[in-house]
Design a protein around this nucleic acid. Structure first.
Lengths: 187, 187
DNA sequence: GGTATCTCATGATGATCATCATACTATGGC
DNA sequence: GCCATAGTATGATGATCATCATGAGATACC
């Protein structure tokens, strides 16, 4: 029997709050731009309690990356959406302008390769998941098969378009990049 | 009249050595993975001399990003190469496996947006330059015009393919990603 | 050969970080 | 109302960092 001295589910709620805050902050400010003290402060706590919730920093980052991937799967790739709808969300100005709530591959992808194995593994899974999601949008019935060339190419175009649109620092050019990528799916 | 106490061009040579070492190290280890002490040590000097060559760290990073962009322009996008040759270099296993000598957008692109203005500006210029280079490969005579949708889409696909191929941590899948991107240009 | 001075080295400063040891506090069970 | 304890806070440790002040060494001009 578990004895609770704090309200039921208190710790789990705080854990979730740290995770969600971290997931957003990491995508916004980068893997190196989020510190434990800063993160805990923005959750309303101090740095000391962190290690009651996570093994270490990499543990948090790995979980935050997976959580971000799951959020994108449920959001832009939601089951009820058509391919066209998914593209208009993923390849949108809003996505480009708000990396904190967007795809973690487009937000942190180039840094994922260089992380510790646990974090690297989380990135790899999310990246493979992204490809699977694109494949599923292309043809609903082939969910088990290896990804098609079309799915691989479209996934590349989507990620690259968001990365480039953010990087060019030119709103008009950014929108043209997104538009060209959206158009490429209907070929 | 300039009085030289060290061999002619000594300082410029050292400056160049720091820059090239930094450019490779940044692409290999990330923007946050390169410190001034570590960098200077790998150049064979100590940290103290750094500020005789660069205003500050951001000054170095901005120059290193531009240098990396120029190297890619002269390498994979060299004048004598056809579009097909450019693609087989950019979308190659070697490029995926050696980010330190490859495209800085594919290596550091998702972090570029979050840097200080000087560094951000360097990334933006390199990104726009990359698009211009793709456009030039597509049609040699239209170098002055705004980039075509085809150029924008191809640039996105190229960057995204390398990012994803690195991230999936699966050699076979990585090669399929590259192949699908190479094939997409001949449509 | 002597010397002025360019280039680099040494060492210090203050900041920030991840992590951990320990102390406090609020709470549910009695 | 009291107490055991889960959850959080305080504070310390050792490491690393960017930056700067100052000093030493090397070299080209005289």
């Amino acid at each position: 029997m578990i004895i609770m001295r704090y309200p039921d589910g208190h710790k789990e709620a705080v854990h979730q709050r740290i995770l969600e805050t971290a997931s957003e902050a990491l995508r916004s400010r980068g893997l190196a731009g989020v510190s434990i003290p800063g993160l805990m402060k923005s959750v309303g706590l101090t740095h000391g309690g962190f290690y009651a919730h996570f093994e270490d920093r990499d543990d948090l980052v790995a979980q935050a990356v997976r959580a971000a991937g799951a959020a994108t799967a449920a959001g832009a790739f939601g089951d009820s959406l058509t391919l066209k709808e998914t593209l208009s969300r993923y390849l949108s100005k809003a996505h480009v302008e708000h990396p904190g709530e967007g795809c973690v591959v487009a937000a942190l992808g180039t840094d994922g390769t260089r992380q510790a194995p646990r974090v690297r593994g989380a990135f790899a899974e999310v990246a493979r998941g992204l490809i699977r999601l694109v494949q599923a949008k292309l043809e609903r019935k082939t969910s088990g098969r290896a990804p098609s060339d079309e799915a691989l190419r479209l996934a590349s175009t989507m990620v690259g378009a968001v990365v480039l649109a953010r990087l060019v620092d030119d709103e008009a050019l950014g929108e043209r990049i997104l538009r060209s990528a959206r158009a490429s799916a209907s070929e």
